[in-house]
Design a protein around this nucleic acid. Sequence first.
DNA 1: TGCGCGACCTGACGAAAGTCAGGTGAGGAC
DNA 2: GTCCTCACCTGACTTTCGTCAGGTCGCGCA
Lengths: 224, 224
Amino acid sequence: MIHVLLADDEALIRAGIASILGTAGDIEVVAEAADGREAVDLALRHRPAICLLDIRMPRLDGLKAAAELRRVLPEVAVVMLTTFNEDDYVTSALGSGASGFLLKSGDPRELIAGVRAVAAGGAYLSPAVTRRVITRLRERPLGTEAAARALVDQLGDREREVLALVGAAMSNAEIARRLHLVEGTVKGYVSQILTRLGLRNRVQAAILAYEAGLVPEAPLDRRA
Amino acid sequence: MIHVLLADDEALIRAGIASILGTAGDIEVVAEAADGREAVDLALRHRPAICLLDIRMPRLDGLKAAAELRRVLPEVAVVMLTTFNEDDYVTSALGSGASGFLLKSGDPRELIAGVRAVAAGGAYLSPAVTRRVITRLRERPLGTEAAARALVDQLGDREREVLALVGAAMSNAEIARRLHLVEGTVKGYVSQILTRLGLRNRVQAAILAYEAGLVPEAPLDRRA
DNA sequence: TGCGCGACCTGACGAAAGTCAGGTGAGGAC
DNA sequence: GTCCTCACCTGACTTTCGTCAGGTCGCGCA
């Protein structure tokens, strides 16, 4: 039996969802909460396998509640349940550690499929959400990072370190300061990186670092 | 009733999958193929709603068959069905126009959920696949592009054009040649772009262009 | 008509980046 | 030992960038 906690500020919606989940046979709603804070409290008490959280809720919204749950109960899987198919929500939700993202506009069977998939340790996105994700993946294939890493692995430790800072859009002087080197040294490394990887200038190097996931801090940060 | 075409080179696996799909009640396997070429031929004859394709098949593999199907029968949805959870396959499959990616190691109910989701016009990824996708999304959130575009929209046409080429890792001289300008002019634009967007150097500009999806050609191309 | 404004273009000059030719020291092969 | 290699570091020199101050043209508007 999959134990589920259900959080939504509207009692009617909670009832509807609970009823749908009840028809599955292997899913049981063990607690219902009307806001995020209550959801966290009840989760601590009941230890469900899955928490279904609405995003828009009073006191503590679903995203914050998800983050809190991940912190205090890492073994609980969180599934966001919302009306809106917004990019920002999807990303924030997954960033908060959610394992699923379901739309209320979806098919009831989707709800059950999602709960089961997540209970089995997987992750589930609503088809409509998945479709956007697929679009994104075509732009930036999964293999990209692996390919970039393969290139980066040809470098020595110091070179990789320099490359990461180049990717953070730092100047040679800044990199030198950070690494306690002289500017000339950094230039030498950059030059070596370029020839070793067959790149033409530091812009390519930066993009590569970026793709390899090497960049330590926000490269578009406008500060000094 | 959802009509499905099933393609796999092993008859036993086809039988197993057909049997699982049969238990759903609303799904019917209308044709079975032992290779990609046969799958395309049978799809043309039977016009199923969904084609379930194994990736490893003789004559025409699943990926190529998917691309072919998309070409000759755009209204048919393709779902890849495979043993391997490989980055390359996932990306190629989605690139070939597949609407789903299921693992044979998955739960049988997942198979049914996937077929239904795709038949409903959605897209479905196996939970294990979805999990990798989520990891990727955290690195590069869906909102990133929108934010980058918002910045880029502050620019004039010419500036945006220059920015795109900066993102392609071109030098000012190269950009000038491409745009039939003098190098000094390009420098002026770059400088203006930097101040207008509050960036510090062309590396940041390049990353921004990259994130905004502005980059017209592969920036890591090592040619001239 | 003349004025201001914005988008587009340019050149000179100082400041970075990139190249090249080294110079150290640690470790492995013989 | 000595020779070789490789990772690490450096400074002089050339090329490329980025800034700044300015020029042209077209357009709205008083």
